[in-house]
C-alpha cells in the first residue's frame, strides 16, 4: 500500500504533466481560432488615388458593405486591402461600383 504522502506526490506529478498540455492546447487554440474566423482578404488596385483626403470616399462606401471587417489603405501603392468577416465575400462588380461611385477606377482585383 502506498502511503498518503506517496499518493499525493504521484497526483502532483500527474498534474504537472497535464497542465503544460492544457496550456499548449489553449495557446494553439488561440492561434488557430482567429485564423479560422478571419475572412477573405481582397486587394483592390485603384487608379486615381492621389491623396489621403480623397480616399475617404472609398473608406465610407466600403464600410457600408455588409461583412467588411477592416480596411487598409496604401496610397503610395494605389492599394486598398479589404478584410471580410468570416463567411462574407466581396465581388469584383461590387468593388468596381464602389470605387467608381467614389470617383476612381478599379484596375485590379485579387483575392487572398
Amino acid at each position: 500500500m502506498m502511503s498518503l504522502s506517496k499518493i499525493t506526490r504521484c497526483k502532483s506529478r500527474n498534474r504537472t504533466g497535464i497542465v503544460p498540455a492544457v496550456v499548449l492546447a489553449i495557446v494553439l487554440g488561440m492561434l488557430t481560432v482567429p485564423a479560422a474566423l478571419a475572412g477573405q482578404v481582397y486587394k483592390l488596385r485603384v487608379d486615381g488615388l492621389a491623396c489621403p483626403f480623397c480616399a475617404y470616399g472609398i473608406e465610407k462606401k466600403l464600410k457600408a458593405v455588409p461583412g467588411v471587417a477592416s480596411l487598409k489603405f496604401q496610397i503610395n501603392k494605389g492599394l486598398v486591402v479589404v478584410t471580410m468577416k468570416d463567411g462574407a465575400t466581396l465581388s469584383r462588380q461590387q468593388a468596381q461600383q464602389i470605387v467608381r461611385d467614389a470617383g476612381f477606377a478599379l484596375r485590379g482585383f485579387t483575392r487572398g
Binding site: D47, G48, L49, A50, I75, N76, G78, G103, F104, A105, R107
Partner: peptide
C-alpha cells in the same frame, strides 16, 4: 472628363 492613372487624375 476624368482620366484615372496610377496615383494621379
Amino acid at each position: 472628363f476624368v482620366e484615372n492613372l496610377p496615383g494621379a487624375q
